[in-house]
């Protein structure tokens, strides 16, 4: 159970806020930090708000990094946060390929 009234203090800018964390969608550390202060307390909410981890690499590169930024702001260890949901397809795949199913031969 998490009471979201839990106050994490005022957002204060940091010197590395411009650091890009999600390369595909070009989301910075500062944007992620601000989302946490706006009440996004887990990977899923931050992703839905900012799109970090939703690009072509599907979060394989930044998943851990986003997690550690969020965890850092709310004072948890990164392992305490649930990973982003794993979703098919594991590799980006063209629509025309999906459209052509081979069931057996």
């Amino acid at each position: 159970m998490t009471d979201r009234q839990y106050i994490i203090g005022e957002f204060s800018p940091a010197s590395d806020d411009d650091l890009i964390i999600c390369r595909c969608e070009e989301i910075t550390k500062g944007e992620i930090r601000r989302a946490v202060f706006d009440g996004m307390f887990n990977i899923c909410e931050v992703r839905r708000l900012l799109r970090c981890g939703m690009g072509l690499c599907q979060g394989l590169t930044c998943g851990r990094l986003v997690k550690s930024v969020i965890a850092g702001e709310i004072g948890l260890s990164a392992t305490a946060l649930e990973d982003a949901t794993a979703r098919a397809p594991m590799r980006p795949t063209e629509m025309f390929i999906f459209a052509k199913e081979v069931t057996d031969e």
């Binding site: 939703m54 072509l56 599907q58 397809p89 980006p92 063209e94 629509m95 999906f98 459209a99």
Partner: peptide, 18 residues
């Protein structure tokens, strides 16, 4: 995908990421 391509063939080379 088959339904979409039936109406929008131009989208067929777009990759599905999720």
């Amino acid at each position: 995908c088959r339904a979409i391509i039936g109406y929008f063939p131009a989208l067929q080379h777009l990759k599905i990421v999720r």
